[in-house]
Amino acid sequence: MGSIDVHTHFVPRAWPDLNERVGPGAWPSLRVDSEHEAMIMVGSSEFRRIEASCWDAEVRLAEMDADGVDLQVVSPTPVFFSYEQPGDQAVKVARIFNDLALEVCAPAPDRLIPFAQVPLQDPDAACAEADRAIASGHRGVEIGNHVGDRDLDDEGTVMFLQHCADRGIPVFVHPWDMPGSPRLDRWMARWLTGMPAETHLSIIAMILGGVFDRVPPSLRITFAHGGGSFAFWLGRFENAWHRRRDLIGVSELPPSGYLDRFSVDSVVFDPAALHLLVDTLGASQVMLGSDYPYPLGERPVGSVVERSDRLDETQRTAILRGNAERFLAL
Rank of each mutant, 00 (worst) to 15 (best):
D270L: 13
V118C: 05
D131E: 15
D270E: 13
G168Y: 05
R60Q: 09
D70E: 15
V250R: 08
G43A: 11
R244A: 11
Q89M: 15
K92C: 04
D309I: 13
D154G: 13
F172W: 03
L100Q: 06
H146Q: 13
D33V: 14
V22L: 06
I207W: 01
I169P: 02
H7A: 12
E84F: 14
A283F: 10
W15T: 01
A133L: 07
T157G: 01
P28D: 08
F232L: 14
D260K: 13
A329R: 14
G209M: 09
V264G: 01
I113F: 10
I4Q: 06
C127G: 07
V59I: 15
P217Q: 08
V91E: 04
D56K: 07
R220W: 02
M41R: 11
L112V: 03
E129S: 07
P76Y: 08
F172C: 03
P76N: 07
A231H: 00
G194D: 03
T317Y: 03
E58D: 15
N239Q: 14
A318T: 03
H200T: 14
W15S: 06
G228C: 09
P300G: 07
P293M: 08
D149I: 09
R307H: 12
I96F: 01
Y258R: 02
R307C: 09
R48L: 14
Y292R: 10
P86D: 06
E84N: 12
A106M: 03
E58I: 11
V147A: 05
R316E: 06
F212M: 00
